[in-house]
Amino acid sequence: MLSKKNKEALFNPLSKDNPVLVQILGICSSLAVTASLEPAIVMGISVIAVLAFSNVIISFLRKTVPTNIRIIVQLVVVAALVIIVQQILTAYQYDVSKKLSVFIGLIITNCILMGRLEAFAMHNSPWPSFLDGIGNGLGYTIILVIVAFFRELLGSGTLLGFHVIPQWCYDHGYMDNGLMILPPMALITLGCIIWFHRARNKDLQEQ
């Protein structure tokens, strides 16, 4: 079930081969949806679902797909899954779907997806492809959650909508930093995480 290769497919993207931190993919959405935790988590789960299932479907189809139109086939599969996710969210998580607005639709353009389909699912059987999708989706989600954690905490003083910074801090002159809510601080937060990550992983550093 979990051979060494499969384990690598599942766990490498979490840190050593993280799609956001190392491959710098999917930056746009990680800046846009991380102003608070809830949309970040929902976005993460959506990407995991779309990525895992599109990987599996493409992996099943990989021997039949004509080379010339393989990108189109991949796009159709991804687009269909994204629309399904969007429809389900509008039906069962309306408020979150309103917050995420266009970004769910833009999962289609998330480079992580096309990257994994081209690089992995087209050459591997369904089970490793599924694990690879879950792994990369998780790697993306972890970063989203970390960025959103700091932005919501410092920007609004809340986590998942609950006030966590005690009132006496405000009474003593503490103020929420409105800049954290804006996209530039997401980029800076992400930069700090990449910095920290590289400092800890010597083998990622260029000579």
Binding site: V73, V76, A80, I83, I84, A91
Partner: peptide
């Protein structure tokens, strides 16, 4: 290639139409 694309789009379209119809009242 043409048959492949046509069949795929037809299948995907049908599936999406069903999901849309099923979730519409809730939405």
């Amino acid at each position: 290639q043409i048959l492949y694309a046509a069949v795929m789009v037809l299948l995907v379209g049908t599936v999406l139409a069903f999901i849309y119809m099923a979730l519409k009242p809730k939405q």
